[in-house]
Amino acid sequence: MNISSARYVLALGATGCAVVFVSSIFIGTETLDLGLAWRELITRTPLNEAPTLSVLLRHRIPRTLAAFIAGGGLALAGCAFQALLRNPLATPYTLGVASAGSLGAWVAFLLADITATIPLVNIITSKQALAFLFAGADVFLVYLLAARRIRTSPAVLLLAGVTLGMLANAGIMFSRFLARPDRLVNMDRWLMGGVDVLGYQPVLFLALGVIPCMVVLLMQAGRYDQFAFGTTMAAGRGVNIARLQTTTFFVGSLITAVIVSEVGPVGFVGLIIPHGVRALTGPSHRLLMPLSIVAGGAFLCACDIVARRILPGETPIGIITTMIGGPVFLYLLVRRQFSDWNV
């Protein structure tokens, strides 16, 4: 891809993303009267007496930001894992991070009865905190595995990730078995994912956790390009393979852990967005990675619009990403016959 068409694609992508981003702020279960919000703003009405402005500032904007960061982070992590493992099926969840995070959240649900009233302990055992802790533990286990040898085969890591995921799923089944039936509804709802955050604290947590990791991964773009011809060739070019593996697994999984703990296991974004973007940009990670962030963010915002406006009630976003993403991805597979990947 030459530079002028790259700029064209980037401009197009940025515009599309901006449209989705703005739409996401103004489309919701209730349509937002922008004029009313403006009047509330200029008359300096206190927020609790200004319902429209309050919806805009406390619900819509944080929700859109959360969706954008989560979608972008998952897509970028997917890009990085696919490049490192040279495998088109690698996703941010391949290493079991999502399942481990879910297990953490389920444990939090189970503990809720005991810990809800104890200060401090109820923060530590909140579902975000435990989801992050469990996902982090999964990351650490995989990291130990990757760091133990000089070059761990991708297949070993994938198998380890799948196994850890299965273990976590067994734990989830067990906690389901133990849980009170009336709690199961809430627990299941979490498993379907949602970006319905309230206020800016979750957004800040996402931003602080995800954005520095994004910068680190973006700086590896040139190294991922070298992986096209395999690890030996990349090593010959001067890429420190062990360091790149460690960095990618740790940082990519950290992104995922942060996101899973806040919005639940939103599936599919990390798998389909890099493939879709690759079809536009070609294989250069210096273009593919930033554009995947933008496209992933926009995709999750768009799914959230569908969740709020088009489907009944507030449909969990995890269902929608897969319901939209699945057919689109199948279409890509059939049409492009996976010709991008030499597998």
């Binding site: 011809f229 395999g230 060739m233 010959g236 294989p283």
Partner: peptide
């Protein structure tokens, strides 16, 4: 080192179109 010595492995092919 890679600026002094270049190494070309046996029968390599890329993971995707380039």
């Amino acid at each position: 080192r890679a600026r002094l010595v270049a190494y070309m492995p046996q029968s390599i092919s890329p993971a995707f179109s380039l």
